[in-house]
């Protein structure tokens, strides 16, 4: 009796120990995760002089929003450019997203539902795109864009962003379509719908969460893209944020607070988008990878 009791207690202690080590681990991880973001924000509140001190001021002695005002003040040089970059990023990301979803929806549906010859090969080919580093495409695309006269245009970016946006969108959406019972469409077709009506009237409304999730992915992917924008764009008025903010950075005299304010502003839209729509986001990513 006492033996059993003590064994039970030990087991409970064991489980408690696991739980506690889990909590401590999470706490440390949280520190590791947010520390850089917090430091980014704190630095952005400093003056250039305050940032260049050692040991650093852990909280600025005289916090200022000066760096942010400078970024959004359209009358200054910095502000004018930053606002331009911001709009460029929004424009490119939005258009990429719309195009990716419009093209990916039918393709994903076909890959999920139809068994046409070559289906596996084509799906493989589509997925394979994301295996290749951007650099493989960079040289020939640069040459292609030059030939098409698209260098220094947003067209070049949107076209290339589609190539990585599409495979991901197709894969994510296929995951959603796979989870919509095929019987729903069969029922619709028996109820008098054509194949297209069954898709449009029954499946499309059900896949709205998938479309939202896919849109966020495409948007964030395009918003954060760097290499192509860095290579294809040289004119300031065309640049997107990730490339544009380099202007705060020169090897000798980096305006760290200004740079941190700019990266903070750049991160806000995607983080907000993500936090608001987190539900869809996480589900979409794992839908295809985890079979329920």
């Amino acid at each position: 009796m006492t033996m059993e009791l003590s064994a039970g207690a030990a087991k409970r202690r064991g489980a408690g120990g696991w739980r506690w080590s889990g909590r401590i681990f999470l706490l440390l991880l949280l520190g590791f995760t947010v520390m850089p973001m917090i430091w980014m924000f704190i630095t952005s509140l400093k003056t250039g002089f305050a940032a260049m001190q050692y040991p650093p001021q852990w909280w600025p002695a005289e916090p200022t929003l000066e760096n942010y005002w400078r970024l959004i003040d359209p009358s200054g040089n910095v502000g004018r450019d930053f606002i331009q970059y911001f709009w460029n990023s929004i424009w490119v990301s939005t258009l990429t997203t719309i195009l990716a979803v419009v093209v990916a929806v039918p393709a994903a549906y076909a890959f999920s539902r139809f068994r046409f010859p070559g289906r596996n090969f084509l799906f493989f080919a589509v997925l394979l795109r994301n295996m290749f580093p951007a650099v493989v495409f960079l040289v020939p695309l640069f040459i292609l864009m030059k030939a098409l006269g698209l260098v220094n245009t947003h067209g070049s970016l949107i076209l290339t962003y589609l190539t990585f946006g599409l495979p991901l969108a197709i894969w994510l959406l296929k995951g959603f379509y796979d989870n919509i019972p095929v019987q729903l469409e069969q029922a619709a077709r028996i109820d008098g719908a054509t194949r297209f009506q069954a898709f449009f009237l029954i499946v499309m409304p059900l896949s709205t969460p998938g479309i939202i999730a896919t849109s966020i992915y495409s948007f964030i992917g395009a918003w954060n893209e760097y290499i192509y924008a860095y290579t294809f764009l040289t004119r300031h008025d065309q640049m997107t944020l990730p490339v544009g903010i380099q202007r705060f950075f020169s090897e000798n005299a980096t305006d760290w607070p200004g740079l941190m304010a700019a990266t903070f502003m750049m991160s806000i839209p995607v983080v907000v988008l993500f936090l608001v729509l987190q539900r869809y986001f996480v589900r979409a990513l794992t839908e295809g990878a985890v079979k329920h």
Partner: peptide, 14 residues
Amino acid sequence: PKDRDIAMVFQNYA
């Protein structure tokens, strides 16, 4: 199916 004028009841109801 739409032109066959039949009705169907599915196992998972659909």
